[in-house]
């Protein structure tokens, strides 16, 4: 059982939920979050690790439905069932990196930038964040990167300077990730995408989240959620 230490509204229907009692994990991994003491809603919801600091974990949650709306209303000291972390997480590579997030897809990029900076302090980190209505969390992202660009509406992928020789990491709408995959391929760059397929178990057991890839069926939760872009966008 994890306990909520703080539940802070950050705009755009998003909350930063600070928790104690979550097993530490890495950027790109996720946890399954459940409302305790009920069988309805039944399943845990996959939520990316936004930040891990000692024994404290932060999740960025956008309320879109039952569970996320319930958690939005929860005060400090309320408990949540949290399983995980699950999934493979992002590979950290000794290179300059460009991170592209769309909507709630920005969630895994904060910890990714933090971990990359800690491991390769001399590398450049550029972050591009695309939003529908309002910009959120620009400052915290700026604190862990060399450069942050934000955009409201339109395609954030139009704003990227593709001439910089680095590695792309993308999370967001499928179309956005497809564009990144295509641009990376044309320029012979590495790119990783993080998928948000619908999940039931999150642990690799139900085969509900199967993703077709260049090398056959993969489980988004267990073999992913992070995949080389060309594995997913191969057609």
């Amino acid at each position: 059982m994890a306990v909520i230490l703080e539940n802070q509204e950050v705009g755009a229907q998003c909350h930063l939920v600070t928790l104690r009692g979550v097993t530490a994990g890495h950027a790109g991994q996720f946890v399954m979050v459940r409302i305790p003491g009920t069988l309805d809603p039944l399943l845990g919801r996959p939520i990316t690790l936004f930040d891990v600091e000692g024994d404290v974990t932060r999740l960025l949650m956008r309320s879109v439905g039952r569970v996320t709306a319930m958690i939005k209303e929860m005060q400090a000291l309320r408990e949540l069932e949290v399983e995980g972390p699950y999934g493979n997480g992002f590979p950290l590579l000794d290179s300059d990196i460009t991170l592209i997030g769309g909507g709630i897809g920005i969630a895994p990029l904060y910890l990714l930038a933090k971990e990359h900076r800690a491991l390769y302090p001399h590398r450049r980190i550029r972050i591009y964040l695309g939003f529908k209505e309002a910009v959120i969390l620009e400052k915290p992202y700026a604190a862990v990167a060399d450069e942050v660009r934000v955009k409201i509406g339109g395609a954030i992928t139009d704003d990227i300077d593709y001439s910089v020789d680095d590695i792309f990491y993308a999370c967001g709408p499928t179309n956005m990730m497809r564009v990144i995959a295509q641009c990376a391929k044309e320029r012979e760059r590495k790119a990783f995408v993080s998928l948000e397929n619908r999940m039931a178990c999150g642990a690799g057991a139900c085969l509900g989240c199967t993703q077709k890839t260049a090398s056959g069926n993969k489980r988004a939760c267990k073999d992913g959620p992070v995949f080389p872009a060309e594995e997913v966008f191969y057609e």
Partner: peptide, 30 residues
Amino acid sequence: KGLTLHGSSGNDGMRVWETPAGLMNSIGLE
């Protein structure tokens, strides 16, 4: 997991869907 003689890659499209205190699945014996 349920086996078939030659194996299978399962069904396309949505495979899991939560209902009140329930789960609907259409894995298709992958």
